[in-house]
Simulated assay, not measured.
Amino acid sequence: MLFVGSTALAAPTMVETVDVEQQRWRQTLPLYGTLTSPRDAELTPRVAGLVERVDVDAGDRVDAGETLITLDRSLARLTLNTLEASVAEARAQLAEAERLASEAERLAARSAISQTELASRRSEVDVQAAALDRLRAEAARQREVLDRHEIVAPFAGTVRERLVEPGEYVAESTPVVGLVATERLRMDVAAPQQYFSAIEAGMPVRIQPEALHGETLEAKVDVKVAASDALARTFLARIFVDNAAGRLTPGMSAKVLFEITSPEEVLVIPRDALVREPRGGTRVWIVESGDEGLRAVERQVSLGRSADNRVEVLSGLSAGDRVIVRGNESLSRGQRVRLAEPRAGPDRAATAADRSLRLSDGTSG
């Protein structure tokens, strides 16, 4: 191939190149959300009454079943005592009815009483047994009412707020204590719909709560809701975070890092290889070897995903092409180039292909 003009006569421009690679697309997807508690409740009494004692205050840690507030139980206890006395009375009346019925059975065997009298005494036993059962049920109900004068914690957590004081009268709909579970927090993340197939339940994620100043916590996706928000074009990913140490609290903001990997391989190049055109579109420069050495060749490309200083190339390049990532700002078509020695650090080491291209150009780098 013969190039004519000033471009051909100019000294070669030093450039840096990398290979176009075919690999599975990997990216870190950062999404943001707020830590919340899976259990946050305002507790109300199960019976109305006068507050006798308050055993907790805001900030207290409580266990499930622990008593938080006690209502005055004087009247309820008196009612229970009355019912228990009635149960004892009914039990005695049943015993007497059973004794009389047994006596009637013996007399009837000797034809000393009529069958009608025997049937009456048997019926009295049934009546007294039913009365005893009714009173036992009423006493059991009253015991439950008495127990309900204590408001207990339905789950372990932290008292968010105390809403009543001793001496106040509360109805069954009156909130008395705010309780929130904090040992295990929840984070609901709205993920873009294009990642629906990439995010699965069980996949590991990293969480960076803002309050921990960059510290990372390991977690996993617990639930992926297979329904999307039609307006926002998102779906729900739910993550639970262990907080046994108590370093986090509901309401904190946090960033979730999802490591996304595509199942198929794609062409990937560094973002530095891209040259934006004033009229729109994107091109890259690649290095080709000809009769007169190395030349810069322009390629129009179409792009896909972009992340972590890398871009996906949908068309315009092939695996193994060498794209220019440094020195491509002012190249012209057919311009002679030479390859710079790779820099130390994260840049790629020189390959055998680099060396052979430099030899074909007649330069030593």
Rank of each mutant, 00 (worst) to 15 (best):
R358M: 09
E103R: 11
E172L: 07
I324C: 03
L294Q: 04
R99P: 01
S102I: 01
D147Y: 09
R343C: 02
D55F: 14
N309H: 12
V15P: 10
K220T: 05
K220R: 15
A64L: 01
A254V: 06
A10V: 00
E84V: 07
A95L: 08
T116Q: 15
R162L: 13
V241I: 14
I239A: 08
L179E: 03
E292C: 01
L248R: 00
P154W: 11
S360K: 15
D347I: 01
R99D: 13
V287C: 07
E200P: 00
I199M: 07
Y195H: 13
E215W: 01
V301G: 14
R336D: 06
G345E: 04
L71R: 07
R233W: 03
D72W: 09
D63R: 14
A352S: 03
L267P: 06
R106T: 12
V62H: 07
G178Y: 02
S102A: 15
R299L: 02
A245V: 03
Q208C: 10
V164R: 02
A307C: 04
G59M: 05
S120V: 09
L100F: 02
A198R: 15
G59Q: 05
E218Q: 15
R141I: 04
L2F: 10
E288P: 00
D361M: 11
V164N: 01
P154M: 07
A245K: 10
E52N: 15
G365K: 09
V311K: 04
E21L: 12
A140W: 00
P175C: 09
G365C: 01
S315G: 09
S6H: 10
D147G: 13
E168G: 06
